[in-house]
Amino acid sequence: MSRLNYTFQAFQKDHFWLPVAVMGLFMLITLLMTGDRQYSVVRAFLGFTLPLLAGGLSAYTFLEDSALELQFATKRPAWKMIAERLGLVLFVIVFVSLTFQLFIQLLGVSLSPLGNVFQRQLVWFVPCLTTLVLGGAVSLMARNSNGGMAAVGGLWIIQILLRGWFAREPVWRNVLLFYGVMDPLGQPRILNQITLTVFSLLLLVAAHTLLKKQERYI
């Protein structure tokens, strides 16, 4: 526990405030809206904004570590470092999402269009997991945090702009980050969520292989 606490304090404290600030902004916008518009804001935050935040934060979680060489000189295996760093970002994202959903419940906005409690968590969690691992893996691949951010941002923008086309294509919709939130109760969302999860696991293996090559990063 002290290790995670130190890891968080050492270089991920700032990571906490950005999603909290964005959540605050969306809470404010929700308060200012009425009726169906409130639901649209909720959908925009959970399904579209959170994945971008998750990917953006994870892109900066490995290489922006001022004591990276000291960390590499310890016997800790690469998988532990990955679990710790990505786990902390995921923890922040989960915290923000659940806090936001609680706020929405208190406001009396119904989230039932997103499915039952479990289904509505998958709507944001699966794409967040994908962008989270993508941001981390690409930053390691490019040996540059901005590279990871560019990959996440680029994918996000392309999919936002072409989401209609992606959603209509039976194959391509499986890799659409936002398919779950666009069609939360449709059957194809299940294959989409499975595909994104498999994609995340493959990226996780890639990130692990890359992080083991420590000399690339010092």
Binding site: Q9, F11, K13, A67
Partner: peptide, 21 residues
Amino acid sequence: LGLYPDLTARQFVDYMAILKG
């Protein structure tokens, strides 16, 4: 040598001790 500026020396050395097992 890179350190974590927001930690105290005691915290930093303690953190490194944890990482070293």
